[in-house]
């Protein structure tokens, strides 16, 4: 964003806060106008926050609530179980209450443990997703597990290197993983080691590249049929 544009947005927001919405609406460039509107919303929200500062009583109540131990989420509990059974596999820093971050090394054994252990009993693999975290960083596989017996669910994330993405296959642990992993392989090129039939599932076998990666480039022709690329400057 140029300085000129920033100045324009700032002026317009100030005017709008004083009740002159026209200043924002009259900006001709569409992008600048939407940015100005976003800035206006932000400014209004901040103004509302400062005016509704909580009183001292409320503050003391809040601090009392904070001192109580927060109950661990299921993901954190299961992460603890995995860490005790398989030391060094859980990435504690990246794990949170919403997911468990694992190292790929012992994933197959962990998966079997999660399925069979009476405290876990994750008998259904609901989804396997690949995620491209951006051109500079790594690829990630995410597993959503659910237990019919305990009616609880967790999410497991495993990172793998972009230039050589390899993750152990859990196709033999949960059979539904067969197609899930094939699809993830098809779209992201993540190789699931130990998968008995790792082929593309949606795209033709002779397709080039991995379409859902951020750095994917559409191939120019397919069996002599021209594949048009995205036109530049299109909005």
């Amino acid at each position: 964003m140029t300085d000129n544009q920033e100045m324009l947005i700032q002026e317009a927001v100030e005017k709008a806060l004083q009740g002159d919405m026209e200043a924002v609406n009259n900006i001709e460039d569409r992008v600048t106008r939407s940015k100005a509107k976003a800035a206006l919303v932000k400014a209004k929200r901040e103004a509302a926050k400062t005016s509704a500062e909580p009183s001292s009583e409320e503050k003391s109540e809040e601090s009392a609530a904070e001192s109580k131990p927060v109950p661990l989420s299921l993901n954190q509990k299961i992460a603890g179980i995995i860490a005790s059974q398989f030391p060094g596999t859980v990435d504690e820093e990246s794990s949170s209450e919403t997911h468990i971050q694992l190292q790929p090394a012992k994933w197959f054994d962990i998966a079997q443990y999660l399925r069979d252990d009476p405290a876990c009993l994750f008998d259904s693999l609901q989804c396997v997703t690949g995620v491209d975290l951006g051109e500079e960083s790594e690829l990630e596989v995410r597993y959503n597990l659910h237990s019919m017996t305990h009616r609880h669910a967790i999410e497991i994330r495993i990172e793998c290197a972009r230039n050589n993405p390899k993750v152990p296959s859990v196709e033999t642990v949960w059979h539904i993983g067969d197609w899930f992993e094939r699809e993830t392989y098809d779209m992201f090129g993540i190789e699931f080691e130990g998968h008995r039939d790792l082929r593309r599932i949606l795209l033709p076998d002779d397709w080039e590249g991995w379409p859902l990666r951020k750095d994917y480039e559409v191939q120019e022709t397919y069996h002599g049929i021209v594949v048009p690329k995205v036109k530049e400057g299109w909005e």
């Binding site: 049929i225 048009p228 036109k231």
Partner: peptide
Amino acid sequence: WQHGYHVLKGVDLV
């Protein structure tokens, strides 16, 4: 017609 990387842009191409 533009962003479908796997879609044929008109069956008259084949």
